[in-house]
């Protein structure tokens, strides 16, 4: 009457069902999509080969430069804000909290428009140094700093209290103990999340296209979009996408390795 299944039978059935669903979905997509049209629109080999070498030497290179400059600026500012958050001077803590809430709460796109429009208005005659590159570093860095500040603050607080006490008992001033003892240890803790932030920035650098850039200043997304509209074909978008993955996938693997190593060191 009741057919009782053994554990092995149950496992087989369960796995069989899961594989069946997986295959069914693949088949549906494979048969349902119009692959010829997709290939025409996205994977024209001759079009793709025309993109080189500019897509690497100009677009990818600019994406990297924008990302790195934004990251460095954001890291420095983020460290300052993290230290302000931990300050014993209350107004510093308030300013840091307000900064973090504002810049984490706004879309990065708005910040970019703000940097492109409001800064020149507010400080007439003063140019942001570095032209577009400076503006991008500022736009990306302002947003990244808010996230990194919270990460760095958590990292500093994760360093055991005894480290500061040991340093103070040896005669370090509070500031010197921070610089020589606490912050180096905090950075080891936050390297994986900061690398993650680098991946996010790498993608956010596409927002540069809202600043208005010259041909030589174009990064991957702008480059791909421009060429797609010139050729009336989307192949450049696909190639640009692959270029992003070329950088973000290895970075993600590095993050996972770092996290595994940090877990082991504990």
């Amino acid at each position: 009457m009741t057919s009782r299944l053994t554990r092995r039978q149950r496992r087989r059935i369960s796995q069989g069902v899961q594989y069946a669903v997986f295959v069914a979905v693949l088949v549906l997509i494979g048969l349902g999509a119009d692959w010829d049209r997709l290939q025409n629109q996205f994977a024209q080999k001759d079009l793709a080969s025309e993109l080189f070498p500019d897509i690497i030497t100009i677009a990818l290179r600019n994406t990297v430069v924008y990302t790195v400059s934004g990251f460095v600026f954001g890291l420095v500012l983020g460290l300052v804000i993290a230290l302000m958050r931990l300050s014993s001077v209350a107004p510093y803590r308030w300013v840091a909290s307000v900064y973090i809430e504002i810049f984490r709460g706004l879309p990065a796109l708005l910040i970019f428009i703000f940097v492109g429009v409001a800064v020149p208005l507010a400080f007439p005659g003063t140019e942001i140094p570095g032209g577009t590159y400076g503006k991008v570093a500022l736009g990306l860095g302002l947003v990244a700093a808010a996230y990194m500040a919270e990460t760095i603050r958590a990292g500093i607080q994760a360093v055991p209290k005894g480290q500061m006490e040991a340093a103070r008992s040896l005669g370090f001033s509070h500031a010197r103990a921070m610089v020589s003892v606490v912050i180096p240890q905090a950075f080891r803790i936050v390297i994986p999340p900061l690398t993650n932030e680098l991946v996010l920035l790498f993608k956010d650098s596409s927002l540069v296209l809202f600043l208005g850039v010259t041909l030589q200043e174009r990064e991957l997304t702008k480059f791909g979009r421009d060429l797609a509209s010139q050729t009336a074909n989307s192949t450049p978008i696909l190639v640009a996408g692959l270029c992003y993955l070329l950088v973000t996938v290895p970075l993600s693997i590095v993050v996972r390795r770092l996290e595994a190593r940090a877990d082991k060191a504990r």
Binding site: P160, G162, Q163, E165, A166, A167, R168, S169, L170, G171, F172, S173, V181, Q185
Partner: peptide, 18 residues
């Protein structure tokens, strides 16, 4: 800080810089 230089301290948890 100057006074503490003259006072060595050893902690229960060692507190070496790792």
């Amino acid at each position: 800080d100057a006074v503490r230089r003259r006072i060595g301290m050893v902690f229960q948890q060692f507190n070496l810089f790792p």
